[in-house]
Design a binder for these strands. Structure first.
Lengths: 93, 93, 93, 93
DNA sequence: CACTGGAAAATGCCGC
DNA sequence: GCGGCATTTTCCAGTG
């Protein structure tokens, strides 16, 4: 109350900053989503069935996830056995 | 069949290329989604309610979308009236 | 297995009952969807552009949704403040 | 321009009327959709897997559609052969 | 840890 | 028949 610059206004500024960062990132994300759509469209233009393509991508993603899980499981086993696993340079953040 | 390099293998290569492009883009998208999550987490760490933040972002997005739709409606009116609308440099792909 | 009427058959009956209820409702829904289509067709018959009509309806729906979300946001604020109905001097936007 | 009540205002009224009719119907539709959701929720509360239920409903709908198509095809054949098909009290509006 | 709500993907539909 | 659009379904993070 006594402050010239109230803590409320600081909070306000912080909120704005966070929201702007988020919105910026969401824009980027939307942009990339657009790119993906374009690639599918281009593929379709070259005579490929987008449905099939999507299926393939989906399956490969599944595979990838499964591999990640298996590696995680392996690491779990190793650590449980007191054996430190060599740090893998994970291709997924 | 007569070709040394069958058209099938060409199609194969094309499919691979498309899929790789898509997967690359999807990775980028996922990465950005991760960034967004981080921002929310950081905001939460600074004492902000994530739920409120998400709602605000959502409302602002709705605002934006509605404006877009209203412009689209205007264009519809104009085209319906046979008046070519001045090409707007759309901020949305 | 001890029961004359197995619990399985009871479950069966329950499933049937649920599915029938759902299917009945879906029929109603489809019927109304048909009515909507008819209205659009009638409007078109009276010289109105369906696309424009749909856009208008869509925008009005968005309006409504946004108001709902804003009210929800207000409630979020209030609950965050312990339900104190503080007057909002919204100097925002 | 010469009319006291311009044709434009008549068109306006017509549009309003159409839009109100549509919105009314959409409300009904949404209401029924809500009912359906409730039924699924109730089923879930009784220990049923909603995903499975949805699948069942979907499959049955497919079956139904196929039967309709086959009947339509049959009628087509009959009319093509100059044989009037007995009017079926169609269960589909 | 199951549930709810919201985002994303997939499907189907309608008009051109 | 195809592209765009609405709906539907699936997925996932957050929450109690």
């Amino acid at each position: 109350m006594a402050d010239t610059i109230s803590s409320d206004s600081v909070a306000q500024d912080q909120i704005r900053a966070f929201i702007e960062r988020i919105e910026r990132l969401e824009e980027e994300k939307a942009s990339i989503a657009g790119d993906i759509k374009e690639v599918y469209a281009e593929a379709k233009g070259n005579g490929f069935d987008t449905k099939v393509l999507r299926k393939i991508v989906s399956i490969r993603k599944q595979d990838h996830n499964e591999r990640m899980e298996q590696e995680a499981l392996l690491e779990l086993y190793l650590t449980a056995l007191g054996m430190a696993a060599a740090p893998t340079d994970s291709d997924d953040e």
